[in-house]
Amino acid sequence: MLSVEGLHVAFPGRRGGADARAVDGVDLDIRRGEIVALVGESGCGKTTLARSLLGLVRPVRGRVTFDGAPLAHSARALKAYRRRAQLVLQDPSGSLNPRHTVYDIVAEGLRIHGRPGDERTAVAEALSRAGLRPPERFFLRYPHELSGGQRQRVVIAGALVLRPELLVADEPVASLDASVRGEILALLLRLRTELGLAALVVTHDLGLAWNIADRVAVMYLGRIVETGAVEQVLTAPRHPYTRALLSVLPEAPGDPVVLTGEPPDPSNIPTGCRFHARCQVLADGTAERAGVADACRSREPAVLHGGGESQVACHWALAAPREVSPAGPAPR
């Protein structure tokens, strides 16, 4: 349904310096009814990629294709596209107008897009699908009168009211209490089952990815470095970066992998593998013994294509036999 090909997004550098390459060559496909988790540490380009899928950030190169048609960035084309693809933001308090009632917040999309039909019925149906029942009880409430979980359900209802085919959810439960997180995740799974929704869920939480996603894409410094079925990637990770992310989970056996230094500046991406300066496999001599250390430092791995099969952008992982990571399975 959604296809990303060779996407590059850059932002002007500070004081006339080199551009920051926030998304630096990404291919990604999302099928109908599929949930894909995009994971990685802060600053890796996840949110920029998600926003570019909705036309909120214009790429400098590459293209986004939805239902076979390239995404155009004219106001008219984007308005039509956003009836079919909707964004769910991380902070419900920041994305809801405190002066508007729940009814007006959810009805706003209908009014902007002029969807035919009875407005009150559509709003009630969206709130009900989002788990706010009976919906009429919430019509005249304001955001400050709701709990955090209820506010996030209002955000989801506002996206659902247009009956979209794709949801892009940027850290949809990061600001919620642990007791509410499971309810929102269960809601997203139910919506996929009932409505056939596809979703891209942006998160730094590998446990969340394990619980909700069909497929996972691991992003580092503007590129996807590993992708595949969630069970395969999170139980037998091949990229050293994925292994490091999994090693710090509370349930992971063994000692956590502590990555040295900070992620490189996206305006000065290192030559070779962009992870090599922090790579534990290169640092402990494992890559040297496999005969790929020079390649790690000098040759950039190819961009992974957007298909669903297991892929990894790592010279050592491609040279080494597959094995189950000592990190073991992520918690379900």
Rank of each mutant, 00 (worst) to 15 (best):
A159M: 12
R153E: 14
D177I: 02
A178N: 13
P164K: 01
V161W: 14
T203P: 08
L185A: 13
V161E: 07
A229E: 14
H204F: 07
A229F: 06
A199M: 15
D170C: 04
G222C: 08
H204A: 09
V180F: 08
L189V: 10
R153W: 15
L167Y: 02
P164Y: 05
G207D: 10
A159F: 14
E231K: 08
M219W: 05
L208D: 11
V233E: 07
A199W: 11
D170E: 03
H204Q: 07
E226C: 02
I224H: 06
A157P: 04
G196S: 01
S179Y: 14
R163P: 07
V218C: 05
R153F: 15
V173S: 02
E171S: 07
E194N: 07
I156H: 13
S175A: 15
V225S: 06
A198H: 05
L200V: 03
V216G: 07
D177H: 02
A217C: 14
G222I: 07
V218I: 10
G182W: 08
M219G: 02
R215S: 10
A174S: 12
G158R: 14
G196W: 07
E226P: 03
S179E: 05
P172F: 01
A159L: 14
A186K: 13
A199G: 02
T227C: 13
R215W: 10
L166R: 00
A157M: 12
L187G: 08
R223W: 06
L188G: 12
G228E: 09
L197T: 00
E231F: 03
T193R: 15
R181V: 06
R238K: 08
G228R: 06
E183K: 12
L234F: 05
A178I: 13
L162K: 06
P172T: 00
V225E: 06
L162M: 12
L195E: 03
E231G: 15
L206I: 08
V216T: 08
I224G: 03
V180R: 05
G222F: 11
R238Y: 10
G228P: 15
A178Y: 12
L234C: 02
N211C: 11
V155L: 12
L208P: 08
P172R: 01
L176S: 01
E194T: 07
Q152N: 13
P237K: 00
G158W: 06
I224K: 03
T235F: 05
V216E: 09
A178T: 13
A186V: 07
P172I: 00
H204L: 09
R192L: 12
A236C: 06
A213Q: 11
R223L: 02
L189Y: 09
E171R: 04
L166C: 01
V168R: 00
A198I: 04
W210Q: 15
I212K: 09
P172Q: 00
L160P: 15
G158C: 10
S179M: 09
V180I: 14
G158A: 14
P164A: 00
E171L: 07
Y220T: 02
I184M: 10
G182P: 14
L187F: 12
I184S: 06
I156E: 11
G228A: 09
Q152A: 11
R192I: 08
L234K: 00
L200G: 00
I224W: 10
P172Y: 02
Y220S: 02
L200Y: 02
A229L: 11
M219R: 01
G222T: 06
V218M: 05
L208R: 11
A174Q: 03
